[in-house]
Nucleic acid binder design. Structure first.
Lengths: 213, 213
DNA sequence: GTCTATAGCTGGATAGAC
DNA sequence: GTCTATCCAGCTATAGAC
């Protein structure tokens, strides 16, 4: 059995070496921008040499793909974490806040996941899979709020990504747009559920007490 | 006076030569992406050589800056064109449709103007100026609709750019998100003007008759 | 102003010793 | 698997003849 154990150990070593390279790539993406680093920079950052990078990844795009997969998994985990609320509307509002926090906390990751800006790069199906799971969960959340039409889901994704994009592009580090998420949730639900009286009073009062810039 | 005339003529020639280079750059940006071309490609496309490019632009960033300035001017002109409507709300809806049309009709231009994705490039103040004018006009348009709070303007920019961004990124060439602009205008105005009954009936009926995908 | 020619460098990627 | 050494194509940008 010694052989099998050693194989497993090597596999773990290999994965952690891959991970160290991906970590260094993120480090550079944060410092220099998603496109602002080369494989030489990456090797230096990781404390290895360029050929060693190629022992773990077959191309630079493969590194971007690993970064995408990690980011998509983080997104799925982050948005799927328990929210500790009962009311579907509160659940949805918390989801919106989480989304903005996720996007604005790492602009490079946002750019990789949601804008398609790297020339010639498309994520592999495996790397993309967690994003699909996350989108499915959004559908369930909207349904729990009585929002079932596909175009209303599209309206929500536009609004949420728009807030994130404006925040990241035009007020980096601030909260000018991300503070509008509560109000956006109110607005969207009021629009999608025209005749639901019970929630409005509460949501409207909360909106007015929300932080502003 | 011959000399002055010739000077003017040369100036015009020089400007048109610059313009020819910028046109070629747009051509490549449409074909290969905003970042997918080199100065060699550009020279070939323009029917000249690389050093000649440098007779008109001091760097590649200077070309991007000229492209940005042209795009911003186009944006200002396009959004400022007369709309031929009296009602402020119709005016606003037409503005929204124009915005989506402008953004989706040229994704490369959208990327240059509204996403900041070229490493190290910032538009010069002169190139950026028309964008500011266009944003000021938006303020007037919103005010004519009774929307005066700054955060409501921010909400609108997030919604409009979000629709455009989703459309360009996730359904290029389609209308899945841009078709939602009418509904977005309704939603926003209903939210910002809680107690205005007169317009709602009309806008709601128009929304329902709008095209869907 | 436009060219030929090329500098000077950096990019991704590889050969081959160890 | 990791290194040294290097390939070669590509890049932006420039020198200098015409």
């Amino acid at each position: 059995m010694t052989k099998a154990v050693e194989t497993e150990w090597r596999r773990a070593r290999r994965l952690s070496a891959r991970q160290a390279i991906v970590d260094a790539a993120w480090q550079l993406a944060h410092q220099e921008g998603l496109l602002g680093w080369s494989l030489r920079d990456l090797a230096r950052e990781a404390g290895i040499t360029t050929p060693t990078v190629y022992a773990y990844f077959e191309s630079k795009h493969a590194i971007y793909d690993a970064m995408f997969g990690q980011a998509a998994t983080e997104f799925d985990d982050y948005m799927g974490a328990p929210y500790d609320v009962d009311d579907p509307r509160e659940h949805f509002a918390a989801y919106g806040r989480q989304f903005l926090t996720f996007c604005t906390s790492d602009p490079a990751r946002y750019q990789l996941l949601f804008q398609r800006t790297i020339p010639g790069f498309e994520p592999s199906p495996e790397s993309y899979a967690p994003s699909i799971r996350a989108l499915d969960r959004l559908g369930g959340l909207l349904a729990a709020n009585g929002v079932t039409e596909a175009r209303h889901r599209d309206l929500w994704t536009a609004l949420a990504t728009g807030l994130a994009s404006q925040q990241v592009s035009n007020d980096p580090g601030g909260t000018r747009w991300s503070d509008l998420i509560e109000e956006s949730v109110d607005m969207l639900l009021a629009h999608c559920l025209p005749a639901s009286g019970s929630h409005n009073a509460r949501s409207r009062s909360r909106r007015k007490s929300g932080a502003r810039r």
